[in-house]
Simulated scan of single mutants.
Amino acid sequence: MLGGLPDASNARGVSSPLSSRDRSIGVPRVSRARKADYRAVMDPEFTRLEDYRVRRMNMRVECGNCGHAGVLDGEKLWRWFVLHRWKSSLDQIGDHMRCSVCQRRPTGFTPTSDPPTRDFGPSDELGWKAVVRRLRAG
């Protein structure tokens, strides 16, 4: 979700629109049209969520459908993806997010030093520990 909790329903079972040849050479599971969108808006220095965490930057996420945008805390987003064991490359994180306005997948991810405009996930260490317990139980 743009500016909200990433969509956990898509963690597994995503069908790939790519051919078996593309999958065998390591092409990410992103449609060809979306790959072009991601490459057009990605900063070459920021290719993984880890890059946002290390540089203490936040992520501006934009919906290509309705134009809605929000700023997410880069470190918190990185931790959310690590706990769920999701891949954190920018061409794959959109598979776990949805726009909070139109429910489509976001297409733009850019680094920003602006403060987060949307909050998601736990706000304290006890909350993060509860997430870990829930993920271990399920």
Rank of each mutant, 00 (worst) to 15 (best):
W128M: 07
E62P: 00
A11E: 15
R98S: 12
A69M: 10
S15I: 14
T112H: 00
S100K: 12
R21Y: 12
V101S: 08
Q103T: 10
V27N: 11
S15N: 11
W86N: 02
M57A: 06
S16H: 09
L77N: 02
D37H: 15
C66M: 05
Y38E: 06
A11L: 14
L126P: 02
D124L: 07
R85C: 09
F46E: 06
L83M: 06
G70H: 00
R21Q: 14
D91M: 11
W80C: 05
G138D: 10
R21P: 01
K35D: 13
F81I: 02
D95W: 15
L77D: 01
F109S: 03
T110Q: 07
L49Q: 05
I25Q: 13
T110E: 04
W86V: 07
P106W: 08
E50M: 12
V101T: 08
G74N: 04
P122C: 06
P28D: 11
T110L: 09
L83S: 02
M1E: 10
R21I: 13
R104G: 04
R79C: 01
N65W: 06
R23N: 13
R98K: 13
C102V: 01
Y38F: 15
C102W: 11
F120N: 05
R134E: 14
A137H: 05
F109P: 01
G26C: 08
P6I: 04
D119T: 10
R104H: 12
K87H: 13
R134C: 02
N65E: 09
S123A: 08
D95R: 15
A33T: 14
M59C: 07
R39A: 14
A130E: 14
P116H: 05
D37A: 12
I93K: 11
G127F: 10
F46M: 07
G70K: 00
D73N: 11
V27P: 01
P111E: 05
T117G: 01
C66K: 06
D73F: 02
A33E: 12
A69V: 02
A69I: 02
C102M: 10
R118H: 11
R104P: 00
P28Q: 11
D51L: 08
V14L: 15
I93D: 03
V27D: 14
S20I: 15
V41N: 13
G67C: 05
R134V: 03
L72H: 06
S113D: 09
V41Q: 07
A69H: 09
R60M: 10
R134P: 00
V132M: 07
E125M: 12
R105F: 13
R60P: 00
R105T: 05
R104S: 13
R34T: 15
V131T: 07
V27K: 12
D51E: 12
C63D: 05
G67Y: 06
G74L: 00
R56F: 03
S19C: 12
W80T: 03
D22Y: 10
A11V: 11
R104I: 06
R104K: 13
W80E: 03
S16V: 13
W128H: 11
N65P: 00
D22G: 04
P106K: 11
T112L: 00
T110M: 08
C99M: 07
G3I: 01
V82E: 10
S88C: 09
S15K: 14
C63I: 03
M1T: 08
E125G: 04
D124T: 01
E50A: 15
V71N: 03
G13P: 03
R104Y: 12
M97R: 05
A36M: 15
R79K: 04
R136T: 00
E125C: 04
